[in-house]
């Protein structure tokens, strides 16, 4: 009884046509939306990196990441140290504590993992 009623309603309202219509249009637009969204993500990332590359190429001042700031600070500190230090008067380095050493290794590993500009 019930399946017959459902079938007759489907037939009467041509719900099959409607159902297929809604399904296909929703699917087409959703697929398009997802494709556009993915393309947008890719191109936003690409444009951002391209912008950085152009800035580097042109030698312009660029916004630095934390890693880059750290690297610059280390390089500057080492350069200052080398310029000012005198071999004979250089203080002896204190042995590092375990935590200090771990922290330094962590910094080094982050430094190594960085991509070349």
């Amino acid at each position: 009884m019930l399946p017959g009623l459902v079938l007759s309603v489907i037939k009467w309202f041509d719900l099959k046509v409607m159902g297929y219509g809604i399904f296909f249009v929703l699917l087409a637009l959703s697929l398009l939306a997802v494709a556009v969204w993915l393309m947008g993500l890719y191109f936003q990332h690409y444009e951002k990196n391209k912008g950085l590359k152009v800035k580097r190429k042109e030698g312009l001042k660029e916004e630095k990441t934390d890693d880059e700031r750290l690297k610059a600070a280390i390089v500057a500190a080492v350069a200052t140290c080398m310029a000012e230090s005198k071999p004979l008067t250089r203080p002896r380095a204190k042995p590092l504590s375990k935590t200090e050493e771990a922290s330094r290794w962590e910094t080094m590993s982050r430094y190594e993992l960085m991509e070349e500009p």
């Binding site: 009467w12 309202f13 409607m18 809604i22 929703l26 939306a33 947008g40």
Partner: peptide, 27 residues
Amino acid sequence: PILANPKTLLLGFSAQLGIFIAFIGAL
């Protein structure tokens, strides 16, 4: 506008629902 905000593609779909309401009305 679609490329900058892909969500709007779905709003374009919703407006098509009226087509199906009119379809039932015509039947």
